[in-house]
């Protein structure tokens, strides 16, 4: 199997995964009991959620990576639909999109990893939430 088949197939698979994750995301951020308060979603809610269940971080990060793959693969498809972008240029586009995706993924993951306020082992972070 060539990379093009795998890309085409993964676009469908990640699409199905995103469908599931998006419904979950939408439910968690808008309809659960903890956000149906006068304040709505706040930092403290997210912090409590992460302390309570660290798997939220894993789901969020995999969600980010799957969405970035799906989205940037779509952007690459759009660019390849124009023949003014020749085949050698497409390789440059692919590398540029991968680098861009890695950059955005890094920026998003850094919100959780190494974040002292969201570290369950760090009691100082919990006091910030308690103070609110």
């Amino acid at each position: 199997m060539s990379a093009r088949v795998i890309n085409w197939y993964l676009q469908r698979v990640t699409g199905a995964a995103l469908l599931f994750l998006l419904v979950l995301h939408f439910w968690v951020e808008h309809f659960t009991a903890e956000v149906r308060t006068p304040h709505g979603l706040t930092f403290a809610v997210i912090q409590q959620r992460f302390f309570h269940n660290p798997w939220f971080v894993a789901v969020d990060i995999s969600f980010l990576i799957i969405a970035l793959y799906h989205g940037l693969n779509g952007v690459r498809n759009i660019i390849c639909d124009f023949s003014i972008v020749t085949k050698p240029m497409r390789n440059v586009v692919t590398v540029a999109l991968i680098l861009f995706g890695l950059g955005v993924a890094y920026w998003g993951i850094m919100a959780f990893v190494g974040n002292e306020h969201l570290n369950p082992l760090n009691p100082k972070g919990a006091t910030v939430a308690a103070a609110r």
């Binding site: 093009r4 088949v5 497409r90």
Partner: peptide, 11 residues
């Protein structure tokens, strides 16, 4: 068919 400008351009 498996070329970048083959079947994969069909949307």
């Amino acid at each position: 068919l498996n070329d970048e400008n083959g079947v994969w351009r069909c949307h």
